[in-house]
């Protein structure tokens, strides 16, 4: 499962990363082992707001498909 498939309000744990995604997302704390929650989706369906390390960040769906998760 990838991060873009997670429903709003649900939590999950990051498992691994695909190549070719900016390491900035990792520096923001989205690294393997971290809890993430999809807080909400933008009115037009993209981007999505995720909560990680007590902070909300908006990322595009295209990037979210590169982040693998397992629901917790």
């Amino acid at each position: 499962m990838t991060l873009d498939q997670l429903e709003p309000g649900r939590c999950a744990r990051v498992t691994c990363w695909c190549d070719g995604i900016s390491d900035r997302f990792m520096e923001m704390g989205l690294l393997p082992g971290t809890e993430v929650e999809v807080v909400r989706v933008a009115p037009l369906g993209d981007p999505i707001a995720v909560k990680v390390k007590n902070c909300q960040i908006a990322i595009r769906r295209a990037d979210a498909t590169q982040i693998n998760i397992e629901a917790s």
Partner: peptide, 8 residues
């Protein structure tokens, strides 16, 4: 550019 935006 990549898009990453903090929502404070």
């Amino acid at each position: 550019s990549f898009f990453m935006l903090e929502l404070p």
